[in-house]
């Protein structure tokens, strides 16, 4: 029993480090430590890696509820907000790489790109949908918003859908990967829908 309790205590730091590792990896590659490298086109690599990490952590965040339900262990919920925040953090990095390194802070070009490229607009919409979630992720906001907090945080589903759409749209030829992400999201959504119809009225 003690050992089990200890294991649950480790969950949060372990999850934190797991989400931190890709960032450390990118930093190491950026500084060309050892054999780590971003290759000959580092900005493109950073842009893609941060976009991918953001999407990955969004989906992992969405996976927490099913894991909780299936395992019957409420402790899983203790890492959900943190993982969502990591997803938001990687999305901010993604945007920062784009605006600072790719566009070199050329604001008129940024405006042009948002207007001209629907996939950028969709990415921006995804980020904007995540923004209120990050802003209300504190304990205080949770208590203040009560039931509405949960309702607000269902925004993670459209945000993820928009991110996948954004990904799908910028692929040159092979849409397999974005389709895999889309299927994962559909599965998660169906699971959620099933839960709700099984236990009507129960909100978690």
């Amino acid at each position: 029993m003690m050992a089990v309790a200890g294991a649950w205590r480790a969950l949060k730091p372990v999850a934190f480090i797991a989400a931190l590792l890709p960032l450390l990896g990118l930093i190491a590659a950026l500084l060309q430590m050892g054999s780590a490298s971003l290759g000959p086109n580092p900005v493109r690599e950073l842009l893609h890696a941060t976009g991918k990490e953001s999407l990955n952590w969004l989906l992992i965040t969405l996976l927490i509820s099913p894991i909780r339900e299936i395992s019957g262990q409420w402790q899983w919920l203790t890492i959900r907000r943190m993982l969502g925040l990591w997803a938001f953090f990687y999305a901010l990095l993604h945007l920062a790489v784009y605006v600072i390194l790719e566009l070199e802070l050329d604001w008129s070009e940024l405006t042009q790109e948002i207007i001209r490229r629907p996939f950028i607009l969709v990415g921006l919409a995804s980020l904007l949908a995540l923004l209120p979630l990050a802003a209300t992720s504190t304990q205080r906001m949770m208590r203040r918003l009560k039931k509405r907090w949960q309702q607000l945080h269902y925004l993670i589903y459209p945000a993820t859908a928009l991110a996948i759409w954004h990904y799908y749209w910028q692929v040159k030829a092979d849409v397999l990967e974005p389709l895999v992400y889309a299927s994962a999201l559909v599965l998660l959504l169906s699971w959620r829908a099933l839960q709700r119809s099984n236990a009507f009225g129960r909100l978690d």
Binding site: L21, G25, M33
Partner: peptide, 9 residues
């Protein structure tokens, strides 16, 4: 760090 990077990058 370098070996970490090899995984993700």
């Amino acid at each position: 760090l370098a070996s970490l990077a090899a995984g993700s990058v």
